[in-house]
Design a binder for these strands. Structure first.
Length: 269
DNA sequence: ATAGGCGCCTGCTGGC
DNA sequence: TGCCAGCAGGCGCCTA
């Protein structure tokens, strides 16, 4: 839908997002062709034909949608790009304004931004060899580690909880107390959960929709997130909730053991 | 250096 | 029935 589309012009809303819109971006975007839609961590990257990059972050409530020009403009719409097909617009809407829109002049500029924020690797194809030293080096708990975009890019609160359930690891377990077999499970769970979530087009809690307006479906497969007090689908124990790393954290007290691994099962130093 | 805590922002929910 | 505190969380910033 977006591929090879020309941006006719850009219309920007009044309310500020996380990153301030630069006036020159409005002119810059006019006439540019969007070459693709890619992703890096939680950032959506649209390369433009002159080498610049249009970059979105959805924050909590961001929606990036292609809609017919005739569709009424909803409240909290912050950017409208008229498209060259004459009938559609790319619209960015974000109720809570935790999201952002940025234009980088080149791929190198975008890379500099990622470098400065120390953005970690993509969550796919990581090996236990990647995880082991990073876990062994810190006493931080696994929940905080998974949420840290410097360690791995793209994991948010929902998926951190689901990953830890899948890996049968307690969210409060310190990174350095993670055994070799536990690291293996964590490694597999990250890839498993995120792959499945993408297949299901993400998670719709209240009203999230994807680019084509479809709701996600992964929320139907939640094992722990939002299931506080309900029976674990694996062992029937009551799912518990706690505050961790400043976020609500959901886990099964029976499937996700808190106790330290036996000495013989410790990660190698 | 590291980690914890807070504020931003809006809409929904539950308790009184 | 209406009101309002509490909660949801990605991330930048501040502090200890």
């Amino acid at each position: 839908m977006l591929l090879k589309q020309v941006i006719v012009d850009a219309q920007v809303g009044d309310q500020p997002l996380r990153k301030q819109w630069q006036e020159e971006w409005t002119d810059h975007l006019s006439g540019q062709t969007m070459l693709a839609a890619t992703r890096r961590g939680k950032w959506i990257v649209i390369p433009l034909e002159d080498g610049s990059r249009l970059v979105f972050h959805m924050g909590m409530t961001g929606q990036l949608r292609v809609l017919p020009t005739t569709e009424p403009i909803e409240s909290h719409t912050h950017l409208i790009l008229r498209l060259g097909d004459g009938t559609n617009q790319l619209r960015f809407r974000d109720i809570r304004r935790f999201g952002s829109v940025t234009v980088y002049q080149s791929e190198a500029d975008l890379q500099s931004f990622f470098d400065e924020s120390e953005l970690g690797p993509e969550p796919f194809g990581l090996t236990p060899q990647y995880w082991q030293p990073r876990l062994a080096a810190t006493g931080r708990n696994l929940k905080a580690i998974l949420l840290d975009q410097r360690v791995v890019a793209g994991v948010g609160n929902i998926y951190a909880d689901e990953i830890l359930f899948e890996a049968k690891l307690h969210p409060t377990r310190p990174g350095k107390e993670t055994s070799r077999s536990q690291i293996q499970r964590l490694c597999e769970a990250v890839e498993m959960v995120l792959t499945r979530a993408i297949e299901k087009r993400g998670s719709t809690i209240r009203n999230y929709v994807g680019g084509s307006g479809l709701a996600g479906g992964f929320q139907e497969e939640f094992n722990v997130y939002g299931r506080t007090g309900n029976p674990c689908l694996r062992c029937q124990a009551k799912i518990q909730q706690m505050r961790l790393a400043g976020r609500s954290t959901h886990f099964c007290p029976r499937c996700q053991k808190r106790k330290r691994a036996s000495t013989s099962d410790q990660a190698q130093r």
